[in-house]
């Protein structure tokens, strides 16, 4: 699932996760539009280093849930305040506009940082790193099993769909489609469960005694300390800017 990586790959996954989490919390708490625009700029830095497929990633970041876009477009018209512009009978307010632009900037800044710093961690390493960051062991194993079987089941889903297509099935907005897709999902659940029985059998055959071992090895190096320190400094800078710049507004 994870593509790219570039120079970001050389940093310890734990440091990257912590940095993004702190960045998200700070950015969400900011209000000043100029400072928020600066945080999008800051999030561009790891994004450029991560060498992610540029167009595809930017599309993903910009293509928020259709409903969220609608929500942002509605906000200027539903927030009380000073008139900004009027569209026929609808009056948009400056306050609502600021609110909507602020949300869009926050969401994009966090998403850029997340995709470039955490999205580039290999899924298994993500599980191990989260375990080191004190996520419960059961949850980590659930994550690892989920990640392991998504690709297997995706292929199985494609096979079943191909079989349906070969029999002339086409997606339409009708009852037949809904029933067929429902059967498809039900069948996938049944097959998945039977697969999990075979997995457990195979595990027991190899001496599974109710405990997994997480063997991920990470090495914290000096550059990781520098990276986290730099992140903290930048975040402190953002908070100070917000207080200097944002108060009169």
């Amino acid at each position: 699932m994870a593509g790219g990586g570039g120079k970001v790959r050389t940093l310890d996954p734990r440091g990257r996760i912590v940095a993004v989490a702190l960045f998200a919390v700070v950015v969400v708490s900011l209000d000043d539009l100029a400072v928020l625009a600066a945080s999008v700029g800051i999030a561009m830095v790891p994004f450029l280093f991560a060498r992610l497929p540029m167009i595809r990633t930017l599309k993903r970041v910009a293509a928020m849930d259709g409903f969220i876009v609608l929500l942002l477009l509605m906000l200027p018209f539903t927030t009380p305040g000073e008139t900004w512009f009027a569209l026929g009978p609808l009056v948009a307010t400056r306050e609502g506009g600021v609110l909507a632009i602020g949300i869009a900037l926050k969401a994009n800044a966090v998403m850029l940082a997340l995709l470039s710093l955490v999205g580039t961690i290999e899924a298994t390493a993500l599980g191990h790193a989260l375990h080191r960051l004190r996520l419960p062991e059961t949850l980590v194993h659930l994550l690892l099993f989920t990640v392991r079987y998504i690709e297997v089941l995706r292929r199985e889903h494609a096979t079943l769909r191909q079989a349906m297509t070969a029999r002339g099935f086409r997606m339409r907005a009708d009852l037949h489609t809904y029933r067929s897709i429902g059967y498809l999902l039900g069948m996938m659940l049944v097959r998945s469960l039977e697969r999990s029985e075979r997995i457990l059998g195979a595990m027991k055959c190899r001496g599974f005694q109710g405990r997994f071992h997480l063997l991920g090895v990470f090495r914290w190096r000096r550059r990781d300390t520098w990276f986290v320190a730099l992140t903290l400094a930048v975040l402190a800078g953002l908070v100070i800017l917000e207080h200097r710049h944002g108060l009169p507004a």
């Binding site: 989920t146 392991r148 998504i150 089941l153 999902l185 659940l189």
Partner: peptide
């Protein structure tokens, strides 16, 4: 969720992840 149930829960969790990627016409 003890460890014996993790394979079943994980495989089912992957199934629901895939189901959430399926688009149906409305």
């Amino acid at each position: 969720l003890d460890m014996e149930k993790i394979p079943a829960a994980g495989v089912l969790s992957a199934t629901f992840f895939l189901a959430s990627l399926v688009h149906v016409p409305v």
